[in-house]
């Protein structure tokens, strides 16, 4: 790629640091063990043997936000739950990403009322929205791969 082409075959491979870091981030993105409603059942399905999210390096749902990289908001967030979700997000270390899984987390969905937060982007910054009520496990994996595409394009200066 770079220096090894000029120096000949030295048995080394060089690469851009940004790509290596993003490759590492996409292939070991641990989600937070955290489900709110029926979408959580499909999230469990995406991690069980048929769809097996560990193929993407995310077999470990971390019960502690301090070890998690990815927050999958699976389900409707009530106004009472909102401060808790925000607190969990604040406790996650950088870099961190958020997927709003399903209609209720994305925009309130069918629950257009005073008790439900009309989209979790009111309280946390959302990277990817996944449509469906609930989304199939494949749809969630598709959302995760969409997020991976986004992470691959990230610049290191974002976290510098």
């Amino acid at each position: 790629m770079g220096i090894e082409q000029k120096l000949g075959n030295m048995g080394v491979v060089t690469h851009r640091l940004e790509d290596v870091v993003n490759w590492g981030r996409t292939n070991a993105m641990w989600p937070l063990l955290f489900g709110l409603a029926c979408c959580a059942i499909e999230m469990m399905g995406s991690q069980a043997s048929h769809y097996d999210a560990s193929r993407f390096g995310m077999e470990l749902n971390r019960p502690s936000p301090r070890q998690a990289d990815l927050m999958i908001v699976a389900g409707r967030v009530s106004r009472k739950m909102a401060p808790v979700v925000r607190r969990l997000y604040d406790q996650m270390p950088e870099p961190k990403w958020v997927i709003a899984m399903g209609d209720c987390a994305s925009c309130g969905g069918i629950f257009n009322n005073y008790a439900i937060v009309q989209g979790v982007d009111e309280i946390v910054p959302v990277d990817v929205y996944v449509a469906g009520c609930p989304p199939r496990p494949e749809a969630l994996i598709n959302g995760i791969m969409t997020l991976h595409e986004k992470v691959r394009g990230e610049k290191l200066t974002k976290y510098a």
């Binding site: 990817v128 929205y129 996944v130 989304p135 199939r136 494949e138 749809a139 598709n142 959302g143 969409t146």
Partner: peptide, 12 residues
């Protein structure tokens, strides 16, 4: 088709 993921709400 069930593969519906978006980066922002407007594109949905």
């Amino acid at each position: 088709n069930y593969e519906l993921s978006f980066y922002d709400r407007a594109s949905a």
